Simulated scan of single mutants.
Amino acid sequence: MDISEYKVEDFVLDPDFKKWVLNPDRETNIIWEKCLEDYPEKVDQVKVAREILINLNVKTRKLQTADKEGLWRAISGKLEEEAPGVGPAAKTVPIGIQGTIRRIEKRVYISRQNHWAAKVASVALLVFALGAAFSLYFDKPLGEEKQLKPEVMVHATSPGVKSSLTLSDGTKVILNSGSKLSYVKNFSSGEREVFLEGEAFFDVYRDEARPFRVYTGEVVTTVLGTSFNVSTRDGEMISVALVSGKVSVKSSRSDTGEMLLEKGEMALVSTNDFSMKKKVFSEEQVIGWTKGMIVFDRTPMQEAFAILENWYGVEIVLAGNIPSSLVFSGKFKEETLANILRGLSYSWEFDYTIRDDQVKIHFK
């Protein structure tokens, strides 16, 4: 019998179930015991239906004393004779509904306990397996087993925006506008390596066990603890200017080996043939940008305008009698673009208009 969809009211209205509750016999007991064995989850509903039927029966029919005694014997007793066709070794089947319910409830309880224990064991096994897998995964050297993909952090600034950040090792970085810095989160590989596009100033936290390396294309700058500026702004040159400490600069495409810099020295690496040269530099001119300062020192016109475009996040459009060669020298600290253009216009003789993020310059 399929009682999978039975609710309490279905049991109450089922005549066979009613007979089992009120007038149990061997046949009905075998049938309903089989049902509960097949659907043990229905035992709670069976108990409620039984109580309803008993209460209804008490209200509608007054049992005679003999009937009560006979019913009690039928419910509480066990059948001693054998079922037809069953050998003497067969187990005795109890006739009472309460006995069946208690037996099924016990079975459900044991099943739930076993299920819970199995779940606990499964979770424990899963934790152990994950721990073992984690250990094996990271104990193997690189190349022997596929490594977990590291999380790469990227800090980028738009033209006109500068940014300051502190890396997980304590190194402080000032990122110039229109630049990008990438590195593995927390330097999880054990190496302190960053990749730079644009310009940045580094104040490196000293850690002799882990040198700090800045990759700019084919050029690698290695330090232990120092402050320096790296720039790839000039499409033809990569510059590394040392403010304090010592650094080594090396190109993977050059045969000249590494170049060691002392304080106040700058390495210039050509992006064409990767040749390197060293020179002294003006700290104000090279890292003045970190203090809100623009310094022009006989700076060509195109380079000066490119600096202003990136600094203020604008586009500069030239018109009129554009000079073929023009240089400018000057210093501006935390000035507005309008004030800088006004100062330049006196020497370069041009008119200008600023509208939103576009600047039009007309040479006279």
Rank of each mutant, 00 (worst) to 15 (best):
E9H: 10
F11Y: 09
D16S: 12
K19C: 10
K19E: 14
W20L: 10
V21N: 02
N23V: 06
N23P: 05
P24K: 08
W32E: 06
C35Q: 10
D44V: 02
K47F: 04
V48F: 09
I52R: 12
T60Q: 06
K62M: 05
L63S: 00
K68C: 06
A74M: 13
A74R: 14
A74K: 15
E81W: 14
E82Y: 13
V86Y: 14
P94I: 14
R102C: 10
R102W: 11
R102F: 11
I104M: 13
I110D: 12
Q113G: 06
H115E: 13
H115M: 06
W116H: 04
A118T: 10
A118R: 12
K119Q: 11
A121N: 07
V127I: 14
E144V: 12
K149P: 02
V154N: 02
V154H: 09
A156T: 13
S158G: 05
P159M: 06
P159H: 08
P159G: 08
G160R: 08
G160V: 05
V173S: 01
V173P: 00
N176L: 02
S182R: 10
F187E: 12
S189H: 07
R192H: 09
V194P: 00
E197M: 01
D203Q: 03
A209W: 11
F212M: 01
R213K: 12
T216M: 01
V219W: 04
V220P: 02
T221D: 02
T222R: 03
V223M: 04
G225M: 03
F228A: 02
N229P: 01
T232L: 00
D234H: 03
G235I: 07
E236S: 00
M237E: 11
S244I: 01
S244K: 01
V247S: 00
S252L: 13
D255K: 15
L261A: 10
E265I: 03
L268W: 08
D273L: 08
M276I: 06
K277L: 05
G288H: 06
G288A: 06
M301P: 00
E303V: 02
A304R: 04
A304H: 00
F305V: 06
F305N: 03
E309Q: 12
I316A: 12
V317D: 14
L318P: 02
I322M: 01
S324L: 13
S325L: 06
S325G: 05
V327A: 06
E334S: 07
I340H: 09
I340T: 08
S345F: 10
S345N: 12
W348T: 00
E349C: 03
Q358V: 08
Q358P: 00
K360E: 11
K364T: 10
K364E: 11
